[in-house]
Design a protein around this nucleic acid. Structure first.
Length: 297
DNA sequence: AAGTGGACCTGCTAGC
DNA sequence: TGCTAGCAGGTCCACT
C-alpha cells in the first residue's frame, strides 16, 4: 500500500495528536517482519516527542524514560554529562507499513482484531498498526544513527524534495546503471519514495519508457523525470494518497489519487492522451503499466 | 558492484 | 458453489 505520499499523509495525521503523549502500555499481536527489539513495558512512561519520516519509514522519537523517584543532587560539573546520558537514553520507534500496513490514532479504538499487531496506548489515545500481510515493522532503536535503525536506512537515496537533489545530480546518479529505469526508481538508492504506482505514473508524465536502461537517459530527460516524480508525489500528497484496497490515513480517511492514475492498473484501457491501449509488463516480478506510444526509449 | 530471483504473509478476484 | 492460480501499494537476502 504505502508509498511516500501515504506514509507522509499518515505522519501528518498522527503527529498533532501524538506529539507530547505519554506511553502507558504497548501490546503486541502476531510477529511482524522484525522483532520490536525491546520489552514492551520498557516503553511505558516515555513521551513521544516528534514524528518524522525518512523515505517510507516513520520515526517516532521518544523521550528518555521517567527518572527515578529519588533525584540525587547533581553537581554543576556533571550536568552536561547527565544531559548526554538522557539523550542516549532517549530513542524511538522506526515504523514501516510494508505492503498492507496502516496506522490509526484515536482515543476510542475497537478491541484489537486479528490484523492489529501493535497497540501503543498513550494518555491521549492509542496508536494502532493494522497490517494483514505483516510485512511491516515497528523497531526500537536508540537513535536513527544507531543499530538497528541505521541498518534499515543505510543505502537509502535522497528524499525526492531535497533541494540538494538537482537534475544534474540525479542524472549523474543514473550514469553507468544498466538497470531499467522503472525498477531503478523502485530500488530507492537513487531517490526514495516512489513505489509501484508513482514510479509508473511519473514515467508516464515524463514520457519515458519503463524498460529504458537508466544510464541511457539524456540529461534533459532525466531532469524531466525528476520533475515528473516530484509533481506526481506532490499531487498524491495533496489528494491524501491512493486508496487501492484499504489505505486510510490515521483518521480513517481514504486517499483520492487512484482516481487520477493515468496508467497504473489500467491495462487495456485507452491512454488519456493518445487513446492507445495501456500495456502491462512485468519487471522484477512487479507489474509495470505504460503507454507504448507516449513513452519512448 | 550491480542485477536477478525467491522469500516473507494474507486476502481477494477471476476463471474454470 | 467451490477450488485454484494469480495478483497485490515493499524490502531483504542469497546468488551470479
Amino acid at each position: 500500500m504505502p508509498e511516500l505520499p501515504e506514509v507522509e499523509v499518515t505522519r501528518r495525521t498522527i503527529a498533532p495528536g501524538i506529539e507530547g503523549a505519554r506511553i502507558r502500555d504497548v501490546r503486541l499481536g502476531k510477529p511482524l517482519r522484525w522483532p520490536l527489539g525491546c520489552a514492551p513495558n520498557e516503553l511505558a512512561g516515555r513521551v513521544v516527542t516528534d514524528v518524522t519520516r525518512r523515505g517510507k519509514y516513520l520515526w517516532l522519537a521518544l523521550g528518555a524514560p521517567p527518572v527515578a523517584p529519588v533525584v540525587p543532587v547533581v553537581p554543576v560539573a556533571q550536568t552536561a554529562q547527565t544531559a548526554l546520558d538522557a539523550r542516549a537514553a532517549a530513542g524511538g520507534l522506526l515504523i514501516h507499513l510494508g505492503m498492507s500496513g496502516s496506522l490509526a490514532f484515536a482515543r476510542d479504538l475497537p478491541p484489537a482484531g486479528v490484523h492489529d499487531h501493535v497497540d501503543i496506548e498513550t494518555d491521549r489515545g492509542t496508536l494502532r498498526l493494522h497490517d494483514p500481510r505483516r510485512f511491516g515493522a515497528v523497531i526500537w532503536s536508540a537513535s536513527l544513527q544507531a543499530e538497528p535503525a541505521a541498518a534499515r536506512l543505510r543505502g537509502l537515496g535522497p528524499e525526492p524534495f531535497d533541494p540538494a537533489l538537482t537534475p544534474e545530480r540525479f542524472h549523474d546518479a543514473l550514469r553507468g546503471r544498466r538497470l531499467a529505469i522503472k525498477p531503478l526508481l523502485l530500488a530507492g538508492d537513487v531517490v526514495v519514495g516512489a513505489g509501484n504506482i508513482y514510479a509508473c505514473e511519473a514515467l508516464f508524465q515524463a514520457g519515458v519508457h519503463p524498460a529504458m536502461p537508466a544510464g541511457r537517459l539524456s540529461r534533459p530527460r532525466a531532469a524531466r523525470l525528476l520533475q515528473a516524480l516530484r509533481q506526481t508525489l506532490q499531487r498524491a500528497l495533496a489528494l491524501g494518497g491512493s486508496t487501492l484496497r484499504d489505505f486510510r490515513d490515521a483518521h480513517g480517511m481514504d486517499g483520492a489519487f487512484q482516481h487520477e492514475a493515468a496508467v497504473y492498473g489500467r491495462a487495456g484501457l485507452p491512454c488519456g492522451v493518445c487513446g492507445t491501449p495501456i500495456r502491462r509488463l512485468v519487471q522484477g516480478q512487479r507489474s509495470t503499466f505504460y503507454c507504448p506510444r507516449c513513452q519512448r526509449r
